[in-house]
Amino acid sequence: MTGMISTGGRKVMSSLFVALCTLSVLIALVPLAFVLFFVISEGVQALNFDFFTKMPKPVGETGGGMANAIVGTLMVTGLGSMFAIPIGIMSGVYMSEYAGTRFASLVRFAADTLNGVPSIVIGVFVYGIAVLPFKQFSALAGGLALGVMMIPIIARTTEELLLLVPGTMREGALALGATHARAVFSVVLPAALPGIVTGVVLALARIAGETAPLLFTAFSNRYFTTSLRQPIGTLTVMVFTYAISPYKDWHRQAWAGALVLVSIVLLCSLLARFATRKIEGLHSN
């Protein structure tokens, strides 16, 4: 009896596969659950109003907050998005609309490669071009490093979403006398906008949590600054510094910083979903 499995055997096999899949999902969820559990339980204890409004206290004093780092994170990610969003979207348009040419596929390959470059390498690169020449760590350099990371993510997302827009939409605009560029910017891009917004916000959430590219660019700063040309503290670097310090109170604050970071990322994701629904609603109510 080769190759014969009784009905009972087949049912057992089927259940076994379902059980395996379920088990895998549980294993995948365990770390996430633990991370969230620890960050929330430890973070909530340390989080208070001071954390958002006060500056870091000198070593040895307890209390204080990370107001400078919260502002710093917002500034550096804001700077990064300011140049990464337009460049990323335009590159995506180029790849999807002018694809087929050799240069477009080269750009696509470059974007994928850049996407895979370890973030520390990007930090070193930006250190070389934006820190060394000026002999100065700066918020601008930090923003540049994060922007360089965002560009390929946004470009690839934009490209993929533009390719999903039916060709008939493009043709409809062309048939009315639109130029190619006009058709893309007035019809195709708006049609893909909900997805692109989601992609941008997710890219934002991802780079907001980066530490490595900021270590040699924005560096860190225990004082409040909004100057673009000064080193600036960010939540990720502060969490890193505080977590490896020998002080109990700093550990406490590191947990609080981690919680704020996770909340920012979560908020971004929720915002993306909300924005997507809102825009889709405009299109199909």
Binding site: P166, T168, E171, L176, A178, A191
Partner: peptide, 24 residues
């Protein structure tokens, strides 16, 4: 002018669809 097999209105309002060609 051209009308396609599958209707292809733009994801815009009725008014903006008709106004599109006039505007561009």
């Amino acid at each position: 002018g051209m009308v396609f097999q599958k209707s292809n209105p733009f994801p815009k309002s009725i008014f903006d669809n008709v106004a599109y060609g006039l505007r561009i």
